Computed example of a mutant assay.
Amino acid sequence: MEPNTAEAETAGDAPSPKISARDVSVYYGEKKAIDNVSIDVFTRYVTAFIGPSGCGKSTFLRTLNRMNDTISSARVDGEILLDGEDIYRSKMDVVQLRARVGMVFQKPNPFPKSIYENIAYGPRIHGISSTKSELDGIVEQSLQRAGLWNEVKDRLNDSGTALSGGQQQRLCIARAIAVDPEVILMDEPCSALDPIATARIEELIDELRGRYAIVIVTHSMQQAARVSQRTAFFHMGNLVEYGKTSDIFTNPREERTKDYITGRYG
């Protein structure tokens, strides 16, 4: 099955996909949660996954860095390629994969450590930094990119859990980018945040997209319209439609997409 890719990826100016999923199905025991999904994800685009609760968008997101491996009943069929390499092959280093494909969760989950150690932990265990000054530089750069440096630079030894909810989420984004990933997955990163913190995270996503491939699951169609260049609509475990965000919201090809966008169900 060919992927339901955005029409902008036409011959001649099509970027190479960072992630290519082909015929991916996900099972929890006997229950099929994702049915035969094919999609390409591109660097420098934010790709939004939208759809009703329980439609499979978070489940599919978790296949992209093998987070479903942590669920004993989960099984993934099909093929997911990262730069042409099958991430489900038996010799894949899953720890290294999750450094390359970072994840930010719905609820901010800073480690019960200092702000500094939250950021330094990944580079240290992955051997990215060899000296204290190098590590200091990574911490500062990551906090700068996450738009948090000016707010915390004088209290790096304070606990990360003492920050506000929005600051904690930006700390988690800084932690994800500290190991120099290529892809950032975000599972409803603003659902626990107030509107001001949400706006700051959305600005940050826009700033980061030039550097990474970003995939965001969101229940907010307004958020998808604001932050993404590509949108995938999921319904009952199926990828119904995938294309340019502007097209999905103004001229969807599928009736089910139109019904969801206009609020007829969901």
Rank of each mutant, 00 (worst) to 15 (best):
I125K: 08
S133N: 14
K132P: 03
G127A: 06
A120Y: 01
I119V: 14
G160F: 06
L135V: 04
G122N: 02
T131Y: 11
L135N: 09
E117L: 09
A120N: 03
K132Y: 08
P123D: 06
H126L: 08
V139N: 09
K153H: 14
Y116G: 06
H126A: 04
E117C: 09
I138S: 04
P112S: 14
Q168R: 14
Y116E: 00
R170A: 05
E140P: 07
S114Y: 03
L143A: 10
D158C: 07
Q141K: 14
Q167V: 08
G137P: 04
I119W: 01
K132Q: 12
I128P: 01
Q144V: 14
P123Q: 04
R155V: 04
W149F: 05
Q168W: 04
A120Q: 03
Y121L: 14
G137D: 12
I115F: 05
R145S: 14
Y121A: 11
S129L: 03
N157P: 00
Q167N: 10
Y121D: 14
S129F: 12
E151V: 01
E134V: 10
S114R: 03
I119A: 07
L143N: 11
I138F: 06
I119H: 03
A146T: 01
H126P: 00
W149C: 05
S130T: 13
H126D: 00
W149N: 11
V152D: 09
I125E: 11
E117R: 14
A120C: 05
T131A: 07
N150C: 12
A120T: 00
Q168Y: 00
I115S: 09
S114W: 01
G166E: 01
I115Y: 02
L163H: 00
V152L: 02
V139A: 07
G137R: 15
S133E: 15
E140A: 10
R124P: 01
A162Q: 14
S114G: 01
N118K: 13
F111C: 03
P112C: 12
S133T: 14
S159K: 09
G165C: 07
L143E: 02
E134Q: 13
G160A: 08
Y116T: 07
K113M: 15
T131L: 11
S164A: 07
K113R: 15
G165Y: 08
A120L: 04
L143V: 01
G166W: 03
D154Y: 11
Q169Y: 10
Q169A: 05
R145T: 10
R145F: 10
L135K: 03
G122V: 01
T131F: 13
A120W: 08
I125H: 11
